[in-house]
Design a protein around this nucleic acid. Structure first.
Length: 213
DNA sequence: CACCAGGGTGGTT
DNA sequence: AACCACCATGGT
């Protein structure tokens, strides 16, 4: 089966460099990670722009903002009532800890547990924050990656093998590759056929161009 | 107009 | 542990 490095190369050749995460600083990555849940980056980015315009894009300002005000800022990202409450709770935790710089000094395993303890941060979001906000070598597993790797592996796929597949990148601490690969997997998943399992062969076969369906 | 988008949570079986 | 309803706006 295709190696991780080969997969990364082919996806990059097909779609180009993705350059995730489009954010300014670790805290903005955290905010964006929550806002983008179950919506497009387009809608999440609009909400971030409004937060920035109103001076609420720092953990101290966000932590002391009124819920109603936050709701009006993040409305375009959907689920705005829950996201407003969760974002402020997260901001308060970060503030009470001494800021994102303090979190950046924590070991990865403990930091992951700490993130999972916060409202609105599940496994996928926690790993995305670890990778893109704190530059930790972790693989972000999502619906796209599970589907793609299941197709690449064929039938004998338990789902637990996903971590072993990307293990070479994690072990070598290649955060550059991990960031780009996850972004490319998502990009490919959005364009590539979702209903036909055979579609994944476009990556396995050289004469079938990736992304040109 | 139905469907989906860079999920998480709480409740039920 | 697997399944479910719910959260809600914006684009196609």
């Amino acid at each position: 089966m295709l190696s991780v490095q080969a997969l990364l190369t082919r996806l990059e050749q097909a779609y180009g460099a993705q350059q995730w995460w489009p954010a300014d600083g670790a805290f903005e990555v955290i905010v964006g990670a929550v806002l983008v849940q179950r919506t497009t980056w387009h809608n999440a980015a609009a909400a971030i722009g409004i937060l920035r315009a109103r001076g609420l894009l720092s953990c101290k300002a966000l932590a002391s903002a009124r819920i109603r005000r936050l709701e009006s800022c993040v409305r375009t990202a959907g689920f705005y009532r829950t996201k407003a409450v969760r974002l402020r709770a997260i901001a308060r935790h970060v503030r009470d800890c001494g800021g994102v710089d303090v979190l950046a000094g924590r070991p990865t395993a403990g930091l992951r547990d700490e993130l999972l303890g916060l409202p609105g941060i599940g496994e996928e979001t926690a790993d995305a924050i670890l990778l893109y906000a704190f530059d930790r070598p972790v693989w972000v597993s999502d619906a796209y990656s599970r589907r793609l790797l299941a197709r690449l592996a064929g039938d004998d796929w338990s789902g637990a093998h996903e971590s072993s597949y990307v293990e070479p990148l994690v072990r070598r601490g290649n955060t550059r590759a991990l960031k780009e690969l996850h972004a490319l997997v998502v990009e490919h998943g959005k364009r590539c056929c979702k209903t036909q399992p055979e579609c994944a062969r476009c990556i396995l076969r050289t004469r079938c161009e990736v992304g040109r369906h």
